[in-house]
Write a protein that binds this DNA or RNA. Sequence first.
DNA 1: CCTGCGCGTTAAGGTTTCATCAAGATCCTT
DNA 2: AAGGATCTTGATGAAACCTTAACGCGCAGG
Lengths: 222, 222
Amino acid sequence: MLVVDDEPSILRALRINLAARNFQVSTASDGASGLAAMARERPDVMILDLGLPDMDGTEVIRGVRGWASTPIIVLSVWGHESQKVAALDAGADDYVTKPFGMDELLARLRAAIRRASPAPDEPVVKTEDFTVDLAAKRVTRADGSDVRLTPTEWQLLEILVRNRGRLVTQRQLLQEVWGPAYETESNYLRVYVAQLRRKLEPEPSRPRYLLTESGMGYRFDP
Amino acid sequence: MLVVDDEPSILRALRINLAARNFQVSTASDGASGLAAMARERPDVMILDLGLPDMDGTEVIRGVRGWASTPIIVLSVWGHESQKVAALDAGADDYVTKPFGMDELLARLRAAIRRASPAPDEPVVKTEDFTVDLAAKRVTRADGSDVRLTPTEWQLLEILVRNRGRLVTQRQLLQEVWGPAYETESNYLRVYVAQLRRKLEPEPSRPRYLLTESGMGYRFDP
DNA sequence: CCTGCGCGTTAAGGTTTCATCAAGATCCTT
DNA sequence: AAGGATCTTGATGAAACCTTAACGCGCAGG
């Protein structure tokens, strides 16, 4: 996170408060060095005071918007409404007037960050023989062909893949796929694990990825 | 655009000003009808007054955020800072205190809309048999002829194409096309997917692009 | 050696889900 | 106000899926 402000007191207050929330804070005290820091460090958010000594705040905003869509929160002493409009239309994401409450600023920061990171990238798990894409709900064999999985098969595989390398107990599997009432129906597991092996393993009767831990549960080993 | 406020004077002022800017405005005067209107009309932005007669404003925000990421701008008389924090953390995008300047509100609206419609990464998707142009809302067959799609057909196709390669659950499709109240009407999907196939697939009864994943949803595979 | 247990495998039945068609209801335009 | 397009709704046969039961195998303990 980058804070650009020419008042040392504000800079200090922000640095302390933000650092206390585990934000990585860097600072700049004029527009030019702010833009330079922006290019150098690529922060997640920029907090920008409009009253800078060297250049107009909207110029800084435009300078950033030319190449990045990083959220910009503008900070400013109470000015004319047209100033807010200019800053927002230049590409700012939010506008807070000083004096401001730290809690409000933090909340607006969270909102800006939340908006900017919409894609919690789901992992793609690869093995030598197939690839599991959790986001697309898709399994592809090494030769490129798709594997057709039924809903239950997919649920089961998903749990095992999300816990890859770890042993998952029969109880947990049954509970998450079939519900708490089926905790003891380990028959279901045998049937469905066998189906998954038939579809995924190069040698279904000698499993390499979907391993049985006798008496306990199953493990997916990539 | 949807405005939810219980003060008729504000409602009128906003309606006039927004309509003058060529916004399509619809209104609601309490939380419940606001949520209903949201589901029914799918506006691009929601302007929400926190002081509603029937329910807490943050509840409305959460109600929307449960299924949509439509920008929400909160309007409120000056209150305690914690109110702002609560609204923003519930999922609001911006917070404006009354009395407010119309120009500022409009600028914040523009900012919210700008953020919500990010640069479409790949607005044209091609297959061997047809081309979908998301920006122009147009589908062209390989021989150059246009495909006529009804609004509902287009909405459905758009979601599938935007998520190309990924499985989209029935739930998500129903929610985004027909609204959260239709989550279980999977009949609609069958009818409309069949229509899309009839218009796009070379062999409608043996789909190549619009694939069914039984029990889970549909997938567009280019 | 026999027995019991856990696991793998297979297949049949019953149920759910899907594709397709068509008729009414509704919306929109003329 | 009529007509066409579009959207709902219901019914039907077909396909996919889930459940269940039966049987074989290997292994440990009696």
